[in-house]
Amino acid sequence: MGVEKREIVIPGQFLDDIKRNKPGRGTFVENGKIYAEVLGVLNKNAGYINVVPLKGRYDPVENDLVIGVVLEAMSSSWLVDINAAYPAFLHVNEVPWDIEFGETEKYLNHGDTIMAKVLQVDMEKRVQLTLNDRNLYKIKGGHLIEVEPSRVPRVIGKKGSMISLLKKYTRCRIFVGQNGRIWVDGNDEGVEKVIYVIKMIEREALSYGLTNRVEVLLKKDAKDVR
């Protein structure tokens, strides 16, 4: 990455020939040529051409950690909203508790929030979730923030640089789900600051040197407090 600007492409825009590059996410191939499928930012990586959408729902990928909201408890499974195109399934076999048939409501009910892992995504984008892993549980307390799923990598930063910065200066516990939901817990001022900074990151995601600017901002605020 240098000083060059991020290029925004529109759907149907010709990107490259299939002989030179491989078609990645957000693209389609017609007559041996690669075209953009969505409105987004052009990204060339390891021989692949990708278009990262500017806006849109979360596209589930296996092993992603996501934050879901329970829509409905059924007799042996739950329907969970993970901000994807369709609701995801969570079966009783995929939770760490022993549940009698028909007693699902006692454990998770409409409106509860969970940290879950995407277990499986099939061809039709039907999603199976699991809670059977480390650090996966029903969330209690704290606040949820929603950002565009395509902005999640920017909120996390390179090797987690942005998120550790936020944690350091605000003393909040933060968990970023790949589906654009962010869970924050801490004191009121801290959470307010996190919300402010994350909204700023979302707004200015396409510019360079964002991590440095965020650090300057957080440092300045930290001084004001003392």
Binding site: G111, K140, G141, G142, L144
Partner: peptide
């Protein structure tokens, strides 16, 4: 239809 998580509700009430 979107569901408001109880979490958000609790947090807004706590702040209020």
């Amino acid at each position: 239809m979107t569901v408001t998580p109880l979490l958000k509700r609790d947090y807004l009430v706590k702040l209020a």
